[in-house]
């Protein structure tokens, strides 16, 4: 199980990376930590001619704080978030998501930017950052642009990245102390890709919230206004009013035909809501 031959280039700057990618065309592939791409290369499912390895680009190995946001460089690893080297957007929000991604040895090399660019519907960052309302910053031959997660995620393993473009950072809104975050994933065993992910970000003090159902073999189903899931209103008792039929209907409308799948996804979302309501108390299903 050895990859087909390819060439690795390690540019030092984003501009060089973009130029390399553009020169490589469809035969070029970006790699960050290589934890998602690596298996596909080894299995010869992916057979690029050129790997543009971003991991030597200092500019991507950094983060910054902006008003109301944390901005994570694409090379920030899951372990960086897990360990707190990359500060969180709120109290134990990203940190516990990061700690549940695959395994430690993978988290030491796997990156936030790589995970988002790979766009596996079952991946944690794809889902957690969607419910948190993150945006991605993209650099390409035509300059830089910014996209909301919903616009960035184009399908299973598909993004809005144009040829030559790379994701350079992720801009995540800070979560106010009054907000409640619930994140539950349903896995058959620890470290496995999720079969269902439910997430909610609820602020009972403002009566606002977002919710998400993920790992549906397609980009996550995001409720920009979660009130529809809680009887039209978000307050301190929101979780007790979880409307399973509303969630179920949304899944059905999204094309999920299988009733058992819908049941599981709805149930996982219900638990994410319950978890959020009980103040970050971990449940069994949380990784």
């Amino acid at each position: 199980m050895k990859p087909a031959p390819f060439r690795i280039e390690r540019p030092r700057t984003i501009a060089d990376a973009v130029a390399l990618l553009a020169s490589g065309g469809d035969g070029a592939k970006v790699m960050a930590g290589g934890q998602s791409l690596g298996p596909m290369l080894n299995l010869r499912l992916a057979t690029p001619d050129l790997i543009v390895d971003l991991s030597g680009i200092d500019a991507l190995r950094s983060m910054r704080e902006e008003a109301g946001h944390m901005v994570y460089g694409a090379l920030v690893t899951h372990a960086d978030v897990e360990d707190g080297r990359a500060p969180d957007v709120g109290a134990n929000i990203l940190r516990r998501v990061a700690g549940g991604i695959a395994y430690r040895a993978v988290r030491n090399r796997g990156t936030m930017g790589g995970s988002l660019s790979h766009a596996d519907p079952a991946a944690d960052w794809v889902n957690a950052l969607s419910v948190l309302g993150a945006e991605v910053e993209i650099a390409g031959p035509a300059g830089t642009r910014r996209l909301a997660m919903g616009a960035f995620l184009a399908g299973a393993l598909a993004t809005a990245l144009e040829p030559g473009e790379i994701l350079v950072s992720v801009r995540v809104p800070k979560v106010p102390a009054t907000a409640r975050f619930g994140y539950v994933k349903h896995c058959r065993k620890v470290g496995e890709f999720a079969h269902a992910i439910g997430a909610v970000l609820i602020d009972p003090t403002t009566g606002t919230g977002r919710a998400l159902m993920g790992a549906i073999d397609a980009p996550p189903l995001v409720f920009a206004d979660a009130a529809t899931l809680f009887g039209g209103q978000i307050d301190a008792g929101f979780a007790t009013r979880f409307d399973a039929s509303a969630a179920d209907a949304a899944l059905a409308a999204a094309g999920m035909a299988d009733a058992v799948d819908r049941h599981v996804h709805v149930e996982v979302l219900r638990r994410a809501a319950t978890q959020a309501a009980s103040l970050f108390t971990d449940t069994r299903s949380a990784a």
């Binding site: 298996p39 058959r188 065993k189 620890v190």
Partner: peptide
């Protein structure tokens, strides 16, 4: 199942 991501072996937590 062509990988151990699909053929699940019990790990320490299981």
């Amino acid at each position: 199942a062509s990988t151990l991501a699909d053929y699940l072996l019990p790990g320490a937590p299981e």
